[in-house]
Design a binder for these strands. Structure first.
Lengths: 253, 253
DNA sequence: TGAAATCCGTGCGATATGTCAACAAAAAGA
DNA sequence: TCTTTTTGTTGACATATCGCACGGATTTCA
């Protein structure tokens, strides 16, 4: 069965779009704000917002709307329904203890990676990463590892349709540069990043497969840039990451 | 302006209800499963699910539906739009380092607390807590502190309409027991829990106020139960918690 | 302060959606 | 295997919703 035009509920799609207009830089919005941000008619945006408020997903002071923590239930329903966090967390903690570095697991969503689990050792990044946090895929080790498992055209298309700012002087931004690096990653089976996300931060990642061999996530370690060249660090710690990936392979479905 | 019946979009409300039917124990559902769980007609549930799939919030293998990580955007839009995590995280990290215990900040949603930020020292709980995680309010130190700031009738009503299982032999489960404890917490200004959530886990919490004096969250520390009586620990560490709460009071709005 | 611009709430006609019932296909049970 | 039950899909009709346009309230700005 294929999804036909007739089976789509406009109201639901619009309401979800309305929720997504609430971002970090626009936590409080008026009806007109939302209408402008979502492209909906003001009357429609108003009905969406009032519905959200009525259902407890938003609050309204008569002028501005704010999302409530109830909205988190929608997202965490998904996270909780993924067995992944619970399964990988213990392995992540153990690995992090053993190698003394921060480790994370993320999945790919479009052109972004989404953190699923994390074992932090020290703060090496200025931004706090936690489950649910997102980073662009093009400049992260986990992103590149997962993009490398997609068909070339698919990966390229995802990268083309999203911005690739130069987050640091080292960031690869050109589509061909990134695709070439991804091709390299595909061959060698892991990805190493040297200060492309943030100055002072290096990371490396390997793919996580389920029992059937499908790549469903990525595992990485992040560390502060130091005197030891990242290539050497990679050679030293790669077996550790691969061992955990192999161990998890049997546990993930 | 008040929300009238006419301003509510049924489709949106139903679709959100559909998302919420996906929980940890039911990650994959057929159309009929969702219809039964949500009380919707099968035809309606079907259109909701097809819409979610079409918008990228769900996946469909022809038989079962699964939520995608895209759903996380809905929730994290809210978390990110709260200035709280970013503001409290540094203070939390510093506090955690200073006292050598895990600390957290959570907010109240109905009869549950929702973790907003966390600085973990060691694993003391069997379940992994992270931003977005939920625990019932009745048996947690942060929950009791926040319930204590509500009107008595409101707090009681929230507790009455949600289950209060005996998670350990120490858990207070009777509504009057819990309300009495909450009354005590209201007077003394902080809450101490001794192994009511999980055996071996103790915690204490203080309220977090914004600049106007409204309680908007709670701050706690969690530690493994040890030889030192929790009452003594509380006396020793209470000033630390209160100092952080006072410091944050000026930063939160 | 006064005028212009913006914003919010509300009818209205056209259209989309919800509900119900029916039916075929698949699954479960005997 | 055949029957019974459940499930997915579709059609029809009553109803809810969309987008537009309008008026009053509020805000902005000179």
């Amino acid at each position: 069965m294929t999804i036909t035009e007739r089976d789509i509920m406009g109201g639901l799609a619009k309401g979800l779009a309305v929720i997504e207009t609430f971002a970090a830089d626009r936590p409080r919005q008026s009806i007109s704000d939302v209408a402008a941000a979502s492209g909906l008619d003001r009357a429609t945006a108003r009905r969406c917002l009032l519905t959200l408020a009525h259902q407890g997903y938003a609050e309204w002071d008569g002028k501005f709307f704010t999302l409530t923590p109830r909205v988190l239930r929608l997202g965490t329903a998904c996270l909780a329904s993924m067995p992944m966090p619970a399964i990988v967390q213990p392995a992540l903690d153990a690995l992090s203890d053993r190698i003394g570095e921060s480790t994370s697991v993320s999945i790919l969503d479009g052109a972004e990676i989404v953190y699923v689990a994390r074992a932090a050792q020290r703060k090496v990044m200025s931004i706090a990463l936690m489950p649910g946090s997102r980073l662009p895929a093009y400049c992260t080790s986990m992103g590149r590892v997962m993009l490398a498992t997609l068909p070339e055209a698919e990966a390229r298309s995802r990268l083309e349709t999203s911005p690739r700012p130069a987050r640091t002087p080292h960031t690869l931004t050109g589509i061909d540069q990134v695709m070439a690096e991804i091709a390299r990653v595909r061959v060698q089976g892991y990805s190493v990043i040297d200060q492309e996300v943030e100055m002072g931060l290096c990371s490396m990642a390997v793919p996580l497969m389920n029992a059937r061999g499908q790549v469903i996530a990525a595992l990485n370690l992040g560390r502060a840039a130091g005197p030891e060249p990242m290539a050497e660090v990679a050679q030293r710690l790669l077996p550790e990451l691969q061992a955990v990936a192999a161990q998890l392979r049997g546990l993930l479905r």
